[in-house]
């Protein structure tokens, strides 16, 4: 429903509902955008401030990056919408399997 254009010629479309949905979605986008800016700011701050070791900074920034990717996927690339269950399942399965393989390669391959 929410994916249909507003100018649809379908007379049974509930415009009120649609507008409400759009407002809600816009709010989510703005909130997540603000959060992403904030996360980016933190990432810069961690590097700029003295006192943090590299072994803390690198995993911390990677964690922030992962959170941003999730925001990006769900609120800007519409994965939060209905009908995206199969793609997201495949995406996360592939990601998991890929990471397991990378982890294995980093730990058990000897040179």
């Amino acid at each position: 429903m929410t994916n249909q254009p507003l100018s649809s010629s379908n007379p049974r479309v509930d415009l009120e509902y649609r507008r409400k949905k759009n407002v809600e979605e816009m709010r989510h986008q703005v909130i997540s955008f603000t959060l992403m800016i904030f996360l980016t700011f933190i990432a810069f701050a961690v590097v700029a401030l003295k006192g943090f070791t590299a072994s803390f900074i690198v995993p911390f920034i990677l964690l922030l990056a992962a959170v941003q990717v999730v925001f990006q996927l769900f609120y800007f690339m519409h994965m939060s919408h209905k009908g995206h269950e199969a793609p997201s399942m495949f995406l996360f399965t592939g990601l998991f399997l890929g990471l397991v393989i990378v982890l294995a390669f980093m730990t058990i391959i000897w040179w």
Binding site: I101, A104, F105, I109, W110, W111
Partner: peptide
């Protein structure tokens, strides 16, 4: 190079 990497890639 590393010959073991082929074995891993092949069996993955």
């Amino acid at each position: 190079g590393n010959t073991i990497i082929w074995e891993h890639l092949f069996w993955v």
